[in-house]
Computed example of a mutant assay.
Amino acid sequence: MGGQKSALLAESICDWWSLAGVDGLVGEEPAGWLVLPPANDAAPPKLKAPAAEPEAMPLPAALQRQEAPVAPAAKGPVVFPEDWAAFQNWLAEDPDVPGSQWDARRVLPTGNPGAPLMLFTAWPEVDDQRDGALFAGPAGTLLDAMLRAIGASRADCYVASLAITRPPGGRCDERDTAELDRLLWHHLRLAGPERLLLIGSDIVRMAANIALADARGRLLDVNQDGRKMETVAVAHPAMLLARPAHKAAAWDSLKLFNRGR
């Protein structure tokens, strides 16, 4: 190979090596050809830590996840006292009395358990809860007039409510109703009245398993330990004040107590 083309080729190769940064085939200092040269890459720059994200605002309480409530330990059936005095003290003080859980103020029975006529309602009305006595206010005034019409007075009666506090909205759920049903029959057994006046649609349904409208002018079949009590049902006086047209139905039932007397 020779000639002008060879010279140009050699010059091109030298230019390429020069551009590649090779100034000479051999350096002035001895080199260990088998030793790996140190890395000549510059240390990578340290990455700047990302700026901390702003702390998220907490969710409103209504949107926060709520822990599931721990169910209270199941209790067995409440044991009702068998002695009359112990039963009355239990109603007044025991925290496990069914129907005492809705209000701190208890509305307790009044009168003598040996009275021939027992007045029984489901729970206190709003006025009763406020005043701490059953059949308070205008409803009580009307009840007294109803009793006078059959020759009785409240002072001669045993007056009680099944629950000693008022449930919210005047309604209780099935679990509470089951315990109140047990208490109802225990209370009647201890009181042992000759005659029973059920006052209000709730107690009529629970004690006689009948609607108040169907009880008009009827003696009801209420048995306690095989003993029948002469029983009639009337609307609560508070309802009679709001709906006077129902007074006639109440009288149709009340006058049954005067039959044969």
Rank of each mutant, 00 (worst) to 15 (best):
M229I: 15
S253H: 07
G226V: 10
I210Y: 01
A233D: 09
A248S: 11
L219P: 00
P244K: 12
S201P: 13
L198Q: 07
A238R: 11
H187E: 02
L188T: 02
M229N: 05
G217R: 04
V222H: 09
S201D: 10
V232R: 14
R195N: 11
E194T: 13
M206S: 09
I199E: 05
R218Q: 15
A213E: 11
R189G: 13
L220H: 07
A191D: 03
E194C: 04
D202E: 14
N209Y: 02
E194L: 11
I203A: 04
M229V: 15
G217S: 10
A249P: 00
A211E: 14
R205L: 08
L212I: 09
M206I: 14
L256M: 07
L256Y: 08
V234T: 12
N223G: 01
R189S: 14
V222D: 11
G226Q: 07
S201A: 15
D202S: 13
N223C: 01
A249L: 12
L219G: 03
H246W: 15
K247Y: 11
K255C: 11
L196W: 03
N223M: 13
V232T: 09
A238Q: 12
I199L: 06
V222C: 07
P237F: 02
D202N: 12
A245P: 01
V232N: 02
A250T: 08
L197Q: 04
R218C: 12
A250N: 05
